[in-house]
Design a protein around this nucleic acid. Structure first.
Length: 505
RNA sequence: GGGCGCGUAGCUCAACGGCAGAGCAGUGGCCUUUUAAGCCAUUGGUUCAGAGUUCGAAUCUCUGCGCGCUCACCA
């Protein structure tokens, strides 16, 4: 049972008063002839000819100013804000009082009248009739907007508490127009990705989220149970193995945009469920995927933002292709002074790091691949502000990627970095079923010590691969991260409508 | 999971060991072109929860809860 605060009790009393007057606070039907922007535009067009513009508007009350025998209000609808003007002359003293007494900020209202321009020049609806569409009981944490001389809008008492904004996203959206804009743009980003891939001959598919076995990445899964089948199921941690099964089925270019689930830590760039884009492209290799990637990302920026030059955390970033290519070995050498090619075992590499950088403390038990990863994140990653494809990765941290011909320690893999963080990950996919089986076995050994991250053998995937899989290039990108990058948001929570939070109470 | 920080009115914040306050919102009044409208009056608090120290706790200590930052984890 809800407990009401004093402000809510006042509004509940208003509901009772309305009922006593026979007025429905939540009527079934509404009427609207114009969006706010349409009514304003039509008025401005016909103003010089003196043609009257009648309009019925509907929206949510954002501000009210009662001034004796007149009242002003601002309502907001899907297109923006517009001012309402009520005057006793037209609607009568009784109706004006009724509006002032019974309506609150946050209520939905329908108002019919004629557009005009006030003394101060604002295009406004002169209301002749109005109707309550839905009463708001809990006061929205509404801000007040002050428009300064230079036209900038200053917000007062805006809803800012990050917890409240995430927990009550409905209130955040209702009160902070910029948040609505963020999610419109996020939708546009996803649509632009789909259009781009569709136009390049890729087929959008949907593969299982509930899986009998998980794979395609190294992450702890969420587990669940199917009662009738009497078996445990996992929420997918990647799409990879299912999408590559489709290549076996002669679907040559496939992609999926959907949700992945990883039972791991939460941070400014990690949410337990996140949106991933993966595509697989038969007969292509990682170099072709690289080219498609830079075209795709710059295309999305152009579509959504109208430019390929963006700003992230104050850094000017140019997404225009071609992006810089940097061999990982070279990048690590330049930033850390260590040539990983000269240290072919974990022990040697560990020693080299300790000698060159005594202040650093890598894990002495790490594999060579993990140590390279360490060098990458400690030295190289922070320098990769402009878009960069870092390529050619150690084999032992890339179990699903194909080796470079003639170099068994290195695989054809790249990661795209922008603004210092990893945006995407791609490689020439391993399509040799016997090699793949061997890698699964190795992974099982590597992870045996850590029971939580056991890497299961996917027998059905191997069976598919034995039918024959064309050589192909694969690609994965966090769509939330792309949205963060393009929208200059510095936490994944800002681009997720309902980010994961601990339950209340 | 570790470290650091935060939690005060519906919202934004002050008070930092001595009467819990302001602006906005709300309520009542005045006001026929306002726009953070203005003016007058006024309501509103388990200071996140619990325990402790103290003559006295929003303030200091401990525990718990939630959030933020950060580290670890995340091939």
């Amino acid at each position: 049972m809800a407990e009401y605060n004093s402000l809510e009790k006042i509004r509940l009393q208003k509901l009772e008063d309305l009922r006593a007057e026979g007025i429905e606070a939540y009527p079934t039907r509404a009427k609207r002839t114009h969006l706010s922007s349409e009514a304003i535009a039509e008025f401005e067009e016909k103003e010089k000819d003196g043609i009257e513009v009648k309009a019925t508007l509907a929206g949510r009350i954002r501000a009210m100013r009662a001034m004796g025998k007149i009242s002003f209000a601002h309502i907001e609808d899907g297109a923006g804000k517009v001012q309402l003007f009520f005057r006793a002359n037209e609607i009568g003293k009784e109706n004006l009082d009724f509006f002032n007494r019974m309506f609150d900020i946050g209520d939905f209202i329908q108002a019919e009248g004629v557009m005009f321009r006030t003394k101060t020049g604002e295009v406004t609806l002169h209301v002749h009739d109005f109707k309550l569409l839905a009463k708001s009981i809990s006061p929205l944490p509404a801000a007040k907007d002050e428009t300064l001389e230079d036209g900038t809008v200053l917000r007062h008492a805006a809803l800012e508490d990050p917890e409240l904004r995430a927990r009550q996203r409905y209130a955040d959206l209702a009160v902070n127009p910029g948040v609505r804009e963020t999610f419109r743009k996020r939708a546009a980003i996803v649509r632009a990705l789909q259009n781009f891939l569709d136009d390049h001959g890729f087929l959008e598919v949907e593969t299982p989220i509930l899986q009998p076995i998980y794979g395609g990445a190294a992450a702890r899964p969420f587990m669940t149970h199917h009662n009738e089948l009497e078996q445990d199921m996992y929420l997918r941690i990647s799409f990879e193995l299912y999408l590559k099964r489709l290549l076996v089925g002669n679907l040559e270019k496939v992609y999926e945009i959907g949700r992945d689930f990883r039972n791991e830590g939460v941070s400014f760039k990690h949410n337990p469920e996140f949106t991933q884009l993966e595509f697989y492209w038969a007969y292509a290799d990682y170099l072709q995927v690289m080219e498609l990637t830079e075209q795709m990302v710059s295309h999305v920026a152009q579509k959504v933002l109208g430019t390929q030059k963006i700003t992230y955390k104050g850094n000017a970033i140019d997404l225009t292709p071609p992006w810089r290519r940097l061999e990982m070995r070279q990048g690590i050498l330049e930033t850390s002074g260590i040539d990983i090619a000269e240290h072919k075992t974990a022990g040697e590499l560990f020693k080299a790091i300790r000698e060159k950088h005594p202040e650093k403390t890598p894990d002495p038990n790490a594999t060579r691949g993990k140590l390279i990863d360490y060098l990458l994140s400690e030295f190289l990653e922070p320098t990769l502000i402009q878009p960069t494809f870092l390529h050619d990765y150690p084999r032992d941290i890339s179990p699903l990627a194909k080796s470079i011909p003639g170099d068994s320690l290195t695989v054809e893999r790249f990661e795209g970095y922008v603004a210092g963080f990893e945006l995407c990950n791609a490689f020439t996919e391993l399509n040799d079923p016997l090699d793949q089986e061997q890698r699964f076995i190795e992974m099982g050994r590597d992870y045996a010590a850590d029971d939580e991250e056991k890497h299961p053998m996917d027998e059905d995937y191997l069976r598919a691969m034995r039918y024959g899989m064309p050589p192909n290039g694969g690609f994965g990108m966090g769509v939330d991260r792309l949205a963060m990058l393009l929208l200059d948001k510095h936490s994944i929570r800002e681009v997720l409508l309902f980010p994961a939070l601990r339950k209340e109470d």
